[in-house]
Design a protein around this nucleic acid. Structure first.
Lengths: 150, 150
DNA sequence: GCTTGACTTCGAGTGAACTTCAGATCCTAC
DNA sequence: GTAGGATCTGAAGTTCACTCGAAGTCAAGC
């Protein structure tokens, strides 16, 4: 077993990500590999960190394109250092915080709005401002507005 | 303008959900309508609350199927009461809390794990337990494990 | 009577993120 | 040397949550 480079099967096993997904990520430019003479993929060890990052980022709701952009800030001529990853992690902390904030507002509004039964009633400006007022455009936008933060 | 029933256009305007999506939701059994003689859809007012619920639930990460199941607990022979919605709202508060918890753990682990640079290193059992140990199966499962809560 | 606009159905198209398949090649073990 | 498993490629298929387009119906205003 080579201690420098990993086969696609080894990476798949260690990350829990299917080989087909790894090939897909590579085609999408999210990860990279070198090839053996036979054309088999060989991954440097740090690809596992990259993949972990990808999966975690997906969990926060980022699309693969957004993730690719984030990863683009890593140096491609050398193995990313601790400092590189640190910078990247810091860069999307606000994103996670925003997501948490959204869910917290959602939770609070729900118990205070769907919960109280006012959701969709004309008196409730929270969720349903346009129902009688049509003042600020349609929709349950108030609760969901933070889509704009995307 | 009828004060009892809403046309698909009116519902679309008031919820911010496209008519095509409303027809889709109806085909999927998430909402229901009666028809005029001409075959046009007419929605009772409480459909707006239903739709708000659907959109909010999607935001928490529920699939339409899960949402349909949740809505199935509402009475279909009468307009849901305040109490009905209250019960429903309570029923997925744990879900929101779990989602928030997941993100919080993610955030903390990131600053303490990707942040510190240990992510994917063999010494770090947090994100990458299988890399040298292969003890509890593969993958960055630790961080993501709460998928199981789905 | 005719245009306009909101509505109808049904089938096909979209984009994201993969998975599956077929057919070929490569490596290891017996 | 041959069987079995891992890998390769490229194209097609899948699921989700819709959207779009075509062709037709219906009601209101001029």
């Amino acid at each position: 077993m080579d201690h420098e480079l990993l086969s696609i099967g080894a990476v798949s096993e260690r990350t829990g990500v299917a080989p087909s997904a790894l090939r897909f990520y590579e085609a999408e430019g999210l990860i990279h590999s070198t090839r053996t003479e036979a054309g088999h993929r060989r991954y440097p060890r740090d690809v596992i960190r990259r993949i972990s990052f990808i999966r975690v980022a997906q969990h926060v709701g980022l699309s693969l394109e957004e993730i690719r952009n984030a990863l683009a800030s890593l140096p491609d001529n050398r193995t990313p250092t601790q400092r590189d990853w640190e910078r990247l992690a810091r860069s999307w902390r606000p994103r996670i915080d925003a997501q948490i904030g959204l869910l917290e507002r959602l939770r609070d509004r729900l118990t205070g709005c769907i919960g109280c039964g006012c959701l969709s009633m004309k008196a409730c400006r929270l969720v349903n401002p346009g129902d009688e007022l049509a003042s600020r455009g349609p929709g349950p936008r108030f609760v969901l507005d933070d889509d704009a933060a995307r």
